[in-house]
Simulated scan of single mutants.
Amino acid sequence: MKYFSKTLTLTLGAVALSFAATSASADTVQLRYDGANHKPFVSEKIDVKPGAGTNFKTTDVGQFKMTVQKGGDSTTFTQGQSILAWCVEVTQSVKSSTLYTIETATQSWTSALTRLFDKYLDKITNSVTSAAMQLAIWEIVGGDTKLNLGAGNFQAQTPNGGWDAWTNSNSYKAINQAQAWLNDLYNGGEVERKWEVVHLTSAGAQDLVGVTPYIAISEVPLPGAALMFLSALGVGGLARRKRAAAQPAKALA
């Protein structure tokens, strides 16, 4: 995909990303664009002027392959590492050899995008589902709460209109699949957490969003100082409970 407005999703290749603690200076990574992960790309018409619904351009849609050229200030990425990425920024082009900043602040769309990945990322197996995920990401990031690909801030169309539907083309299948995922996004209650969203930004190229495997806090080993702090809290809590037990019971207000 060649166009959108500030955001991609990277799905890790062979090496999982382990993000370092935030430092005073932002971590960076330089990525090379290597083309489609699922070939061929699917062609769609998308509105490259979000909100207008009038400026449609036909473009390639689907998951990218990227290679880490330089880790910058970060130990998060390894030179030569393969990364799979989704474009979500229609107002800028994807560019090779771009230096990205690894953002730490969450965005308004982070929660919805996380749910999308948790529910459907494992469904990406071919060009159609790859394009469908790309369209769903664009709608969540650049669209509105109605999550409708046919109206609103972000819109998508098949290149040949009714002919694509009549021939059941990949363009038609991708839009239908994306809309089905969006319609079902908030159904089914709680979803098992699998992924953590990663956000990379660049002033001169499409921003990216990606995922790393989700690790629950309870699974992360705590440093010694944190363990000591929690132990102190536990001792203090125990002392308070003993004192409370010695006091007469009080009615709730």
Score class of each variant (00 low, 15 high):
residue 3 Y to P: 12
residue 4 F to C: 12
residue 8 L to K: 09
residue 19 F to E: 03
residue 21 A to C: 07
residue 21 A to D: 12
residue 24 A to I: 15
residue 26 A to N: 06
residue 27 D to F: 00
residue 30 Q to G: 02
residue 35 G to Q: 11
residue 41 F to N: 00
residue 43 S to E: 13
residue 47 D to M: 07
residue 52 A to V: 15
residue 52 A to K: 15
residue 53 G to E: 14
residue 59 T to E: 15
residue 60 D to C: 04
residue 62 G to M: 04
residue 64 F to W: 15
residue 67 T to D: 08
residue 69 Q to Y: 11
residue 74 S to A: 06
residue 77 F to P: 01
residue 81 Q to A: 05
residue 88 V to P: 12
residue 88 V to L: 13
residue 92 Q to W: 12
residue 94 V to S: 07
residue 100 Y to S: 00
residue 110 T to H: 05
residue 112 A to E: 13
residue 114 T to D: 06
residue 117 F to G: 03
residue 119 K to M: 07
residue 125 T to F: 03
residue 128 V to E: 03
residue 128 V to Y: 06
residue 129 T to Q: 00
residue 130 S to G: 11
residue 134 Q to K: 00
residue 135 L to I: 11
residue 137 I to V: 09
residue 140 I to T: 02
residue 149 L to S: 09
residue 150 G to Q: 08
residue 154 F to E: 07
residue 156 A to N: 01
residue 159 P to E: 04
residue 160 N to W: 03
residue 163 W to P: 01
residue 165 A to D: 15
residue 178 A to D: 01
residue 181 W to Y: 03
residue 182 L to Y: 12
residue 184 D to F: 13
residue 186 Y to E: 09
residue 187 N to E: 08
residue 207 D to P: 02
residue 208 L to P: 03
residue 210 G to Y: 00
residue 220 V to I: 13
residue 222 L to N: 10
residue 223 P to R: 01
residue 224 G to A: 15
residue 229 F to S: 08
residue 243 R to C: 01
residue 244 A to R: 11
residue 251 A to T: 10
